[in-house]
Amino acid sequence: MKRLILCSAIALSVSACATKPPRADQLKAAPTEHLTAFQSPKDGDATLIVTRDIGMLGGGCYMALFVDGRDVGKLATGETATFHLPAGEHIVGTWITGSGLCGFREGADRTESSTIIRRGETRKFRIAALSGGGYSITPTTI
């Protein structure tokens, strides 16, 4: 019986830390001071929208965002950002960043994903914490 209670408690604590996509009413736009590039639309651009999951895991740290290796901003949990990119192939990346323990391994957990965005098209990406550790940045429909 004690084992069952212990296993249930562990399962509950792990699931409470998992991240999940935010509902529309939970989303907030990233502050403009956290976005450093691709903010002004130009004729012929494509649109990239990146959203960070909500949840406890890594919630006290920012996720740095990169497009083609260039630092373009950072997101807190439940934040979304829109970038106006030239049409074509792009590499979208992220890693954990911030002060204190958040910056301790900055860059060590970098993850990237490739996408092709045509003129006038919009692509969405989601940053999620992985249950085994680390983060992912993957295409999404939400």
Rank of each mutant, 00 (worst) to 15 (best):
V72M: 10
G44R: 14
L57D: 03
D45M: 15
D68H: 01
I49N: 03
A46Y: 02
C61Y: 05
D71N: 11
F66K: 07
T47Y: 09
I54G: 02
G59N: 07
G60K: 04
L57S: 13
G58S: 09
R52T: 05
R52I: 13
I49H: 01
V72I: 12
G69A: 05
L48R: 08
I54Q: 05
T51Y: 04
D71S: 14
F66V: 01
I54Y: 04
T47G: 12
A46R: 02
D68T: 11
Y62L: 00
G58L: 04
D53Y: 11
G59Y: 01
L65C: 14
L57E: 12
K74L: 06
G73T: 07
A46S: 10
T47M: 15
G55H: 06
V50Q: 00
I54W: 01
R70E: 11
D53T: 08
L75H: 06
G78L: 06
I49K: 15
G60I: 06
I54V: 14
V50Y: 00
L75F: 09
L48V: 11
D71F: 09
A76Q: 06
D71T: 13
L75C: 13
I49P: 00
L65V: 15
T47L: 13
G59V: 07
G78V: 01
A64I: 03
F66Y: 09
A64Q: 05
G59H: 04
A64V: 05
Y62Q: 05
G59I: 12
G58M: 10
G44I: 08
L48S: 12
F66P: 01
G44F: 15
V50A: 00
L48E: 03
G78W: 01
A76N: 10
C61G: 02
R70K: 08
Y62M: 04
T51H: 03
T51K: 02
V72L: 13
C61V: 12
G73C: 14
T51E: 15
M56I: 04
G44K: 11
L75R: 12
L48M: 15
G73R: 03
Y62A: 04
T47P: 12
I54A: 00
R52E: 09
V50D: 00
D45A: 14
T47W: 10
G58F: 11
D71A: 09
R52C: 13
L48T: 12
T77W: 06
R52K: 15
G59W: 06
G60R: 10
M63T: 05
G60C: 02
